[in-house]
């Protein structure tokens, strides 16, 4: 089933020229993967950082042979390197949380639709409550109660996002449950797990798949926001968001580069994810399939 959907995606894209957002996103992923190889310094290694070269403007030639293309931050870390390493953390956090949130949300939504009655009521009221609270508030409460750390921030994003998947897939699955092929499955007394994951889920998953890239963009932004507020990843492992936050206090004194370049990198990442997501949505929308 998923193989089919993926094949459809592949077919659509094969004939097309590679889009700019797609290229940009691929470049981001490659840069993140190759960060230890190409970054001028390792910003997590105190031995490679020279505190006396803190807040150097872009283009400064450093003492120990570094060329600070984008300048250094308040601790003397090379901005280019912090961006590359921060990218790794941002992507790991957002991708992991999106995948897990999708799995939880889809299972919950399909179960709600299939079992109906009190299961449906319980799951969907939780979803309603979840969606009626501002996302950032839910994430903040989660972080404050769970404490900081990369795994906690992933958990917080999952808590925020699963509800959207559940809401979307429940509606689709509900309209599928009325179809005779599911009656036939019930007449065979198939195990519930099989009905849910072999019959109901594959036939209701299409709208949720288009949701994944969009939610991925949200996850990146949410992680950056939390890190910016100082509730995200630890200070010694800066993600893009916390790098922006690091430079915030220096903006007033004209040291724009500490916040600006990580901010631009973040902008480009979220924008490319959103554009690629829009492309995926379009190629999966049956109404736009005609030629």
């Amino acid at each position: 089933m998923k193989a089919n959907t993926l094949r459809a995606l592949w077919k659509r894209h094969r004939g097309m020229s590679i889009s700019l957002p797609g290229f940009l996103l691929a470049a981001y992923v490659l840069l993140a993967l190759a960060a230890p190889l190409i970054a001028p310094q390792n910003p997590y290694d105190p031995l490679q950082i020279y505190g006396w070269e803190a807040s150097s403007p872009p283009g400064t030639m450093g003492g120990p042979g570094y060329f600070y293309l984008l300048g250094t931050d308040g601790l003397g870390r090379d901005i280019l390197s912090t961006i590359l390493y921060g990218l790794r953390i941002s992507l790991v956090v957002s991708i992991t949380s999106t995948v897990v949130a999708a799995l939880i949300g889809l299972t919950a939504g399909v179960s709600a639709a299939y079992f109906g009655r009190w299961v449906d009521v319980v799951i969907m009221r939780i979803v309603d409550l979840q969606l009626s609270l501002p996302t950032i508030l839910v994430a903040l409460i989660a972080i404050v109660t769970l404490g900081p750390g990369i795994d906690r921030i992933i958990l917080a994003i999952i808590i925020v996002q699963w509800a959207t998947y559940a809401r979307v897939i429940r509606g689709v699955a509900l309209s599928e449950t009325g179809k005779p092929y599911l009656d036939a499955a019930r007449l065979l007394r198939l195990p519930t797990r099989r009905v849910l994951f072999r019959h109901l889920l594959p036939n209701s998953i299409a709208p949720a798949i288009t949701l994944i890239p969009i939610e991925l963009g949200h996850a990146v932004a949410l992680e950056a926001t939390l890190s910016f507020l100082g509730l995200g990843v630890p200070v010694d492992k800066p993600s893009l968001g916390s790098t922006v936050a690091n430079g915030f206090q220096y903006l007033m004194t004209g040291q724009y580069w500490i916040s600006l370049f990580p901010g631009l990198a973040l902008f480009g990442l979220i924008a490319s994810i959103n554009f690629v997501g829009e492309g995926v949505r379009r190629s999966l929308d049956p109404r736009s399939r005609s030629v």
Binding site: M1, N4, K179, P180, Y181, A184, A185, R198, H199, P202, N203
Partner: peptide, 8 residues
């Protein structure tokens, strides 16, 4: 058309 699982 609706009695068979379209993805099986």
């Amino acid at each position: 058309a609706m009695s068979l699982n379209p993805r099986m």
